[in-house]
Amino acid sequence: MTLNDVILLLHPVFAVVVVFPLIGMVLNRSILTRRRRLQTSPGKSKIPPQVGPEHVQMGRWLTGSVVGLALLGLAAPISRKILETQLWITNPFQVVFIVCMFLATIGSLVLLYRAKPWYWRATFAGLTSLGVIVLGLQDGVFRRDDEWFVSHFYYGMIATVLMILSLAMVQDIYRDRTQVWRRIHILLNCVATLLFLGQGITGTRDLLEIPLSWQKPHLYRCDFANQTCPDVSSQLPIVSPPLV
């Protein structure tokens, strides 16, 4: 594999090694937290009280990891497109804009972690989500617009925004005695869990469709609509067996 192939693998490697294990731990803590909170039988609960704070902390880690995963997955195709088209010569403003969007998105996420008042949390959550979406609309990003309902890109965008919203509303969950924010949080994360499951399926499918750099000139001669490739067997040189 070339360096470009290795860079493309950073996104799925980070997802498998970091993000999906975190998803499992967050789900486990969320189930234990809900069981402890709804427990009505007398006596001491067998579920330790620290599962709640652990769920919140792991959820914060998960949000940062998901946003980082999305930015990592977007950075590779965008930078490759910039290098192939030499965009810094033809349109330097767009290159500066893309770099600023990456920096602004990361900065907005950091400020979202630090924000306390609801209006600042809403502002930075909106800016972080907007940054991820704008970067996803750049040239070079494979989106499958004609098959959006099974698109790895669209699943990822929605899941990332849901994680950002979940992080922004954590403080409101503990202040709201009507449990409205808690129900919204549960609903959003149930949808996000289904999207993450779809991410695992569509991501595996897309890995099968992405050829190595040295294979591209040959595979791109194929007719993907009819699922046929030109017969090159007649063009291969005939190699004589070695003489014993």
Rank of each mutant, 00 (worst) to 15 (best):
T2V: 11
N4A: 15
N4R: 15
D5Y: 09
H11S: 06
H11A: 08
V13S: 08
V13G: 05
F14N: 13
V17F: 12
F20M: 11
P21M: 07
I23C: 14
T33H: 10
R35K: 14
R35L: 14
Q39C: 09
P42R: 05
S45A: 06
K46A: 14
K46T: 14
I47A: 01
Q50N: 15
E54M: 14
H55S: 15
V56L: 12
M58V: 05
W61C: 11
T63L: 02
V66W: 06
L71Q: 00
L72G: 11
L74W: 03
L74A: 03
A75H: 02
I78F: 04
R80G: 12
K81V: 07
F93L: 13
F93V: 11
V95Y: 08
I98P: 00
A104S: 05
T105H: 00
I106V: 13
I106R: 00
G107V: 01
S108G: 04
S108I: 03
L109G: 03
L109E: 05
R114V: 00
A115P: 00
Y119P: 01
R121W: 02
R121K: 08
T123A: 07
F124W: 05
A125M: 00
V132Y: 01
V132S: 00
V134A: 15
L135I: 06
L135F: 01
L135C: 02
G136N: 02
G136V: 01
Q138M: 10
Q138D: 00
D139Q: 09
G140P: 04
F142A: 13
R143L: 00
R143H: 09
R143D: 07
D145N: 15
E147S: 12
E147N: 12
W148H: 12
F149A: 11
F149R: 11
G156T: 09
M157I: 15
M157T: 13
I158A: 15
A159H: 03
L167E: 03
L167N: 01
V170G: 06
V170K: 05
V180S: 10
R182L: 15
I184R: 14
I186Y: 08
I186N: 07
C190I: 12
V191K: 05
V191A: 06
T193F: 14
L194Q: 01
F196S: 08
L197H: 04
Q199W: 03
G203H: 04
T204W: 13
D206A: 13
L207D: 07
L207G: 08
L207F: 10
L212D: 09
L212M: 13
S213H: 11
S213Q: 14
Q215K: 08
P217F: 00
P217R: 01
C229R: 09
C229Q: 07
D231G: 02
V232T: 13
V232L: 11
S234F: 11
S234K: 15
L236S: 08
V239T: 12
L243S: 15
V244D: 13
V244M: 09
